[in-house]
């Protein structure tokens, strides 16, 4: 054993480590949001489907709700839309669809065509509320508990898998 072996040994260890980390990449879409564990930011916006009404957080006080950020310009929102409809059917949670920087006409047409999973659709044309929520892009989904605290955030598409693994356990009180 000579000392010149050490660099190769350390290097091989690192390669193994990187290999292990790499295998875990696909299930790492979690962006640990600064919001988790904090009170959800306030919003008060006109409802896309009932223009004269304003929607705000207080309507959902005491209830679990998902705040789903979407837009008709967002391709992946179309991908997750069927899952949102499924979630709505379970009746376990209400979904607030924050319509992000969108054309109201197109957004209404989209919901008419694909179905509406949302309890309300606050219309955030300038994206000001989205900035308060730290939204980077669409789709993003926040889970808010009855106390109004953000408990989970999913960046990217909601799938039946991450719904079952990361959102449902919180709502059913099974989360660690």
């Amino acid at each position: 054993m000579n000392r010149f072996v050490i660099p190769l040994g350390v290097f091989l260890l690192l390669v193994v480590l990187f290999g292990v980390t790499l295998k875990r990449v696909p299930d790492r879409q979690i962006v640990p949001s600064a919001l988790i564990g904090r009170t959800a930011p306030q919003f008060e916006l006109p409802d896309l489907l009932a223009q004269e009404q304003l929607v705000n957080n207080s309507a959902y006080a005491g209830k679990w709700y998902l705040l789903n950020v979407w837009g008709t310009w967002c391709v992946e929102c179309r991908v997750e839309h069927p899952t949102l409809l499924e979630i709505q059917k379970t009746g376990k949670v209400e979904i607030v669809g924050l319509n992000y920087k969108d054309e109201p006409e197109q957004a209404r047409a989209w919901l008419a065509q694909l179905g509406n999973p949302y309890a309300s659709v606050p219309e955030d044309r300038e994206g000001r509320v989205a900035i308060d929520w730290g939204v980077y892009g669409a789709p993003e989904t926040f889970l808010v508990n009855p106390q109004g605290v953000v408990v989970e955030k999913i960046v990217g598409v909601i799938t039946p898998q991450n719904w079952a693994a990361r959102l449902l356990p919180h709502i059913e009180g099974r989360a660690p």
């Binding site: 000579n2 660099p7 190769l8 290097f11 390669v15 790499l22 990449v25 696909p26």
Partner: peptide
């Protein structure tokens, strides 16, 4: 911030390249 673009296939390829070139050089070094 967003790991949408992450592609494990690419990672494994670069890792293999790294292992071959650097591993080879370090073996030569021994």
């Amino acid at each position: 911030v967003h790991s949408f673009a992450a592609d494990p296939g690419r990672g494994i390829f670069i890792l293999a390249l790294l292992a071959l070139t650097i591993g080879g050089a370090l073996a030569l070094y021994i």
